[in-house]
Simulated assay, not measured.
Amino acid sequence: MIICSLKNNLQLATLKTLSLVSISVMSPQQTVQELFRTADCVCFDVDSTVIQDEGIDELAKFCGKGEEVKKLTAEAMGGSMTFQEALKKRLDIIRPNVSQIKEFLDTFPIHLTPGIPELVKTLQERGVEVYLVSGGFRSLIEPVAVHLGIPTRNVYANRLKFFFNGEYAGFDENEPTSRSGGKGIVIRRLKEQHGYQRLVMIGDGATDAEASPPADAFIGFGGNVVREEVKKRAAWYVTSFQELLSSLSIQTK
């Protein structure tokens, strides 16, 4: 009996050692993939990630300021200026009023990125909490959340301000998403408030990449636009949401 017990203990110790070895040799990409498969919370960027467009670019185009703003958006997403600086410059050019926002929402269709409805549904069915964390505007993002079945309370984005006559009055600079590092602040608060242990951030921009940490992992997304700086910083970079769906279907032992 003693010999049998020693043999069983030795086998158990060997298995534990092999398990530790297998973990230690996981590549950075494999580590992120495993974190995604076991995540209890996933946060998505919206513009050029969940949707195919950059919302602020489309709003600018609608308001007749498209070309001026598009250049600033590219610079901001590439990380060449602070996000708050880029946001202020773009909004100062557009200066959208309440009527324009309403008309834009009524006439501009939501262009969801292929695969995102299925991915969100799959995550929710697995009990994963899904959030939209964006440097865009809440008024433009809430309809996207509703379309995907994501509670609007799970939307973190910027708020536009207007004067009593409906004219543009600026944006709420107290919103963390209005500045560089803001997405990280949102994620830290989510972890503190809800106790998430494996939170993954997915997005196409520099503000998404810099949110990890405190996010436990970052997945770069290039399905709509590839930003080389972001690609370099992502241990796992995908160009289709199908890659994420396929990853979730893998059964780990």
Rank of each mutant, 00 (worst) to 15 (best):
Q11P: 00
L12T: 11
L12S: 12
A13Q: 12
A13V: 09
A13L: 14
L15D: 08
L15G: 00
L15M: 10
K16S: 13
K16W: 07
K16P: 00
K16E: 14
T17C: 15
T17W: 15
L18T: 01
L18P: 02
V21P: 01
V21K: 08
S22P: 05
I23F: 13
I23D: 15
I23E: 15
I23N: 14
I23P: 00
S24F: 13
S24V: 10
V25D: 05
V25A: 06
V25Q: 12
M26L: 15
M26R: 14
M26A: 11
S27W: 02
S27I: 03
P28N: 09
P28C: 07
Q30D: 14
Q30G: 13
T31M: 05
T31Q: 06
V32M: 03
V32R: 00
Q33P: 07
E34F: 06
E34P: 00
E34V: 02
E34D: 11
L35W: 01
F36L: 05
R37W: 11
R37M: 15
T38E: 12
A39R: 01
A39V: 04
D40P: 14
D40C: 14
D40K: 13
V42H: 02
C43P: 08
C43W: 03
F44P: 04
V46L: 15
V46H: 09
D47M: 05
S48H: 11
S48A: 15
S48Q: 10
S48N: 12
T49P: 07
V50Y: 11
Q52F: 06
Q52D: 07
Q52I: 04
E54L: 03
E54A: 07
G55S: 06
G55D: 03
G55C: 05
I56D: 01
I56H: 01
D57A: 11
D57T: 08
E58C: 12
E58L: 15
E58H: 12
A60P: 06
A60L: 04
A60G: 09
A60N: 07
K61G: 04
K61N: 13
K61R: 15
F62P: 07
F62W: 14
K65N: 10
G66W: 13
G66T: 09
G66D: 13
E67C: 04
E67M: 09
E68W: 07
E68R: 10
E68L: 14
E68Y: 09
E68N: 12
V69C: 05
K70G: 08
K70L: 11
L72M: 12
L72F: 04
T73Y: 01
T73R: 00
A74I: 10
E75Q: 15
E75N: 09
E75D: 14
E75V: 13
A76M: 11
A76W: 05
M77G: 11
G78S: 13
G78F: 03
G79D: 06
S80H: 09
S80I: 10
S80F: 07
S80R: 10
S80L: 12
M81A: 06
M81T: 08
F83C: 05
Q84E: 13
Q84C: 06
Q84Y: 02
E85V: 09
A86R: 01
A86Y: 01
L87N: 05
L87G: 02
L87R: 08
L87S: 03
K88G: 05
K89Y: 01
K89P: 00
R90D: 03
